Simulated assay, not measured.
Amino acid sequence: MTTLNNNHLRVSIRPQGAELTSIFHKSSGIEHLWQADPLVWPWHGPNLFPVVGGCLNNQLLIDGQAYPMERHGFTRRSMFETTESSDTHAVFTLRSSDVTRVHYPYEFLFQVIYEIDGPVLTITYRVVNEDDQTVYFQLGAHPAFTVPFRTGEAYEDYFIEFENEEPLQTHRLTADGYFSGETESVPTTGNRLMLTKSLFDRDALVLKNISSRRVTLQSQHHNHALSVSFSSFPYLGLWAKPGANFVCIEPWLGCADSDGELVPIEQKELIQQVASGKVFEATLTINVE
């Protein structure tokens, strides 16, 4: 376990998946990250790579060959190497190997970089192409934030406030986790999405066409808040296990497949690419206000 510390935050990351396990705000004494109850949902904040969401038939089609690929990719179960570490900065690295090539035939280096500065945690994803061809991928974040923040409050006391007041439309998923082609309006109050225990009964809310690049999780009863800024990520997923005391705020560069036929990786929705010898980076921030 690697721990970052400053006067505001204590942040812990485990080598499996380079996954956040704690975002502790010192002055308030609030643990903001879901503590992975295995009877409810056994993760804290997985990093998603090289796919986001589910692939049809659990397969990824690359150069005409189908490779086995689990939902959200293999990195959340992979052991990363801690290649840099200080009180406020850490770099976790996963290199292509015989294990990854079974699922994803590219030569790559995938890094997750964490840095704290005051009350702000910055997460940078870096994909280095070590192959002699273009590497295609998706990536995303999946942090689960505990709701409510304080004892004596209810889940329904909380809301997610969007940077801009805009209509929200979710893209519906089938029971197997693929896009059905259907959309549905999401009721809001101004720029606020009120949390309820039934909000995610039909799976995640997938927002593809929003202009907001920051959302804030907050109570109606006090000003302690947590915001997520995601300028590098055009899609946003919101999800919780129905009835659980958390909400996931998930910036995505990619998404699940649509129901139908498997398509080559380069045709997947919101697919990213990096040329041979080049580096791709995307950054998000979590700010405890």
Rank of each mutant, 00 (worst) to 15 (best):
S258D: 09
R71I: 13
E281Q: 13
G73C: 08
F233I: 06
E261W: 06
S12F: 04
V274F: 01
P187S: 14
T100N: 11
E161D: 06
D176E: 15
S227G: 03
S276R: 12
Y125F: 09
R101V: 04
E161Q: 13
Q218S: 10
G64L: 06
H32G: 06
E261C: 10
S232P: 00
N245L: 08
E161G: 03
F92N: 03
T189Q: 14
G118K: 07
G17F: 06
F110D: 05
I23H: 00
F145T: 05
V112M: 09
E84A: 14
G260T: 09
N5H: 14
L39H: 13
P264Y: 13
P143K: 11
G64Q: 10
I123V: 15
I23G: 01
L109G: 10
E165H: 05
A141P: 10
E165D: 12
E182Q: 15
A144S: 12
L238A: 07
A275L: 11
F159D: 05
D117R: 13
E165F: 00
F162D: 02
H25E: 14
L238G: 01
P68E: 09
G64Y: 09
N191S: 15
V135D: 06
H44Y: 15
F49V: 11
V135Y: 02
I271R: 08
N58A: 02
S232R: 10
M69T: 08
E115G: 10
S97N: 04
I113V: 15
S227E: 01
T88H: 08
Q272P: 04
C248Y: 12
I265R: 04
L39Q: 15
A144H: 06
F92T: 05
E269G: 02
R77Q: 12
Y106V: 02
